[in-house]
Write a protein that binds this DNA or RNA. Structure first.
Lengths: 160, 160
DNA sequence: ATAGATGCAAAGCATTTGCAGATAT
DNA sequence: ATATCTGCAAATGCTTTGCATCTAT
């Protein structure tokens, strides 16, 4: 189910999280909100360490344990996605920020590129339904190497 | 009780491993051979614990550390594949036993089904080349839920 | 008022590593 | 002969958890 989510406002985001927490007898705390905000305001893929660092930089007090506990909630509520790319640390990404996409990982420079292909999505659903299942989620990563001897992305990455 | 016939003979398998080891100044030991054999003769997806258990059952002496070290070699040499399915322990699979395939995971009963789709493979290569990369490998898992309220596979699994 | 959250430190787990003795080549 | 392995146990790194204390509701 490749749903294209449009950009979501902070209010709606907060609303969604509160709704999920209410349903699960959870409390809406400063710490949880801090993690949610960080994931939605900082692009890219954030590791637990990165999230902790950003929180520290902003003088937001969140412990490592709470970051882990909150990330679980965010993933369960569908507000965040967890990725484990081979040879990389686990990272998290805002789920409602952009449309659905999968990832290309360059094995030379580790650059991660996002892609989306409608045919691919359709075929995946067809395969699943052939086996009598409906899609819950999927994991799809393409690991590649640049055609040129030295990955051309390396330089681009350095200047970021 | 292998469910599929090997595409590769034990001799060729051994040959391939020896060749890899020779190139990398590695030694062909009983322990390494034991792990290779277990992966090729037993069930589809084996965890490290499962491999150790099978080795013990056969009175093959291999330590946990050596199993880990050997699995690294097998993956690097292309003789084994490593899979990390969400919510499952890491498992290893013989790489030259069957043709390439990806996996469907039922989130209800955890049953793992293999699939292959030529269009899917072709499209993936097209996408990568569009970004100037050539495929090294890919990770592709479809997580689904049975259409029927209670996953019909659950019972089948229990009787195994 | 109280169920639930937080931080801390300790515990858990899977995996890796240093080292001394063993072994393939 | 010697470079490489192996087993062991200790170490690592990431994640989870128990508990006493706080806080949202």
């Amino acid at each position: 189910m490749p749903q294209f989510a449009s950009k979501i406002s902070n209010e709606e985001l907060e609303e969604r999280f509160k709704e999920y927490l209410y349903k699960h007898n959870g409390k809406f705390t400063h710490e949880r909100m801090a993690v949610l905000r960080i994931i939605y305001e900082d692009d890219e893929h954030l590791s637990v360490d990165a999230i902790l660092q950003i929180a520290r930089d902003r003088d937001l007090s969140v412990s490592r344990a709470t970051v882990y506990r909150t990330l679980d909630l965010l993933v369960q509520s569908g507000l965040a996605k967890k990725h484990q790319f081979d040879g990389h640390e686990t990272v998290f990404e805002a789920a409602l920020k952009e449309g659905h996409h999968d990832h290309i990982v360059c094995v030379d420079c580790n650059k991660i590129t996002e892609f989306f292909d409608g045919d691919l999505e359709r075929i995946q659903n067809e395969i699943l339904s052939k086996y009598g299942l409906v899609m819950v989620k999927h994991t799809h990563q393409l690991y590649g190497r640049c055609i040129r001897p030295n990955c051309p992305e390396k330089e681009a990455l350095k200047t970021r």
